[in-house]
Amino acid sequence: MNTHLKHALPAWTWFAGLTLVFVILYAPILSALVFSFSVDRFPSLDITRFSTKWYAQVFADARMLEALKNSLAIALSTALVATTLGFAAAYADFRFRFFGQRMVLALALLTPTVPIAVLSLAMLAFFSRIGLSGTVGSIIVAHVVVATPFAMAICRLRLEQLPREFETAAQNLGATPGQALRLIVLPHAAPAIGAAALIAFAVSLDEYAIAWFVGGLEQTVPVTVLNTLQGQVDPTIHVIGTLAFAATLSMVFAAQMLLLRSTKSHKNKEVSP
């Protein structure tokens, strides 16, 4: 900021606000981390001793492992399908002009504003009528609907940075549309596709409402957490939380790194011979 532009309040007040916000955001995450290693059942400031006994308990819990297996299978499938759908739609929106283009965009991007409780209810009703409720497949199908908008937005934003001529220039030099896509568009979009997959995976891994409504007896990790929330204090939630934070945070950061690096390298990349 230029020196002649002064702020309405001294700098420290704004920074205090920044600190406060980050405390609110990260305190729950840090506390889960700390208490997951405390031997005490009731989390409090005077921690008796640190241990990994709750971790051992979680990994010995067959129900939890089953939920974890479900969660991973669902998140993986969701990431795959959502990224494919999202990239295809982003590419279509980037490459072609067609009737109803804005509607498709609106449809995909307005989905996240539908309250998750309403969406879950609609999904449950729908899947029960077609006899799919209570299956892992129905959770995947629903999670794809929730995760695709994110995947599409990420891919679309990245494609926007690709000058439109590149693809036609490749075709002008003899590349078929398929070759131009593979040789010009995909290398450019690769980081975004990776990021989209990671975000879709994270969204699915973290989603509880639809999984709870639609999944029936097939529990995912967040659903077991939700069920535990209703009961008494259970330190194993801190363990699950810590593990989940570690997993999703690293995925989200990996996605952000991918996107940032690609934006930078676009300008100045030296290719060694």
Partner: peptide, 27 residues
């Protein structure tokens, strides 16, 4: 990036953390 990352991470567990933070005998 740091501000956005929590949006995608275990909302339920963070609520649970708040619960034990604010509850009786909590931090």
């Amino acid at each position: 990036g740091l501000a956005l990352a929590p949006f995608f991470t275990s909302y339920l567990v963070r609520i649970y953390s708040l619960q034990v933070f604010l509850g009786e005998g909590g931090v």
